[in-house]
Simulated assay, not measured.
Amino acid sequence: MEAILFRPQGNLDLKGSYRLKQIVDKLIFQSKNLYWIIDLALVNKINNFGLTTLVFVRKIAEKRGCDLYLFNLQDDIQVVFHITGLDKEFQILEDETFIDSLKPKLLLC
């Protein structure tokens, strides 16, 4: 099964969210049953645009039959996810063993 590793960089704000959404929009019509992993290691801050985009991506992944995972949430971002309850809505990976086994295609956002 194919895997795609999205790696947004900088802030997941209006501009950063738009870049991520553009890439996801291109994948909508590709094959189903993929693993989508969003690596947030290089994301410094997230705001309501970023959160909304992640929820949008999760819904698209579900419709396409893809498994979506978040990975490398920075402390500040973990707090935002906890406060908003989104930590219970997303599958969050704690280590990269699973990711390494998938050998995902990397897409910088």
Rank of each mutant, 00 (worst) to 15 (best):
M1N: 13
E2R: 13
A3N: 13
I4V: 15
G10Y: 08
D13G: 06
L14T: 14
L14M: 15
K15I: 15
G16W: 12
R19I: 14
R19L: 15
L20I: 12
L20C: 12
L20W: 11
L20Q: 12
K21G: 03
Q22S: 14
Q22P: 08
V24H: 10
L27E: 15
L27S: 13
F29V: 10
S31I: 11
N33V: 05
L34T: 13
Y35T: 12
Y35Q: 07
W36E: 08
I38K: 10
I38D: 08
D39E: 05
L40W: 04
A41W: 05
K45W: 04
N48K: 12
N48L: 10
G50I: 03
G50Y: 04
L51D: 03
T53Q: 04
V55N: 01
R58K: 13
R58D: 04
K59W: 01
I60V: 15
E62D: 11
K63A: 11
K63D: 12
R64I: 08
C66K: 03
C66R: 02
D67T: 08
D67A: 10
D67R: 10
L68A: 01
Y69G: 00
Y69L: 02
L70Q: 00
N72V: 03
L73W: 05
L73C: 08
Q74V: 00
D75Y: 01
I77G: 03
I77K: 02
V79G: 00
V80R: 04
F81S: 05
I83R: 06
I83Q: 05
I83C: 00
T84C: 08
L86Q: 03
E89K: 14
F90I: 02
Q91N: 09
I92F: 06
L93Y: 00
L93V: 00
D95W: 05
E96W: 00
F98N: 00
D100Y: 05
D100V: 00
S101H: 09
K103Y: 08
K103W: 00
K103N: 11
P104E: 06
K105Q: 10
K105W: 04
L107H: 09
L108I: 15
L108G: 06
C109H: 14
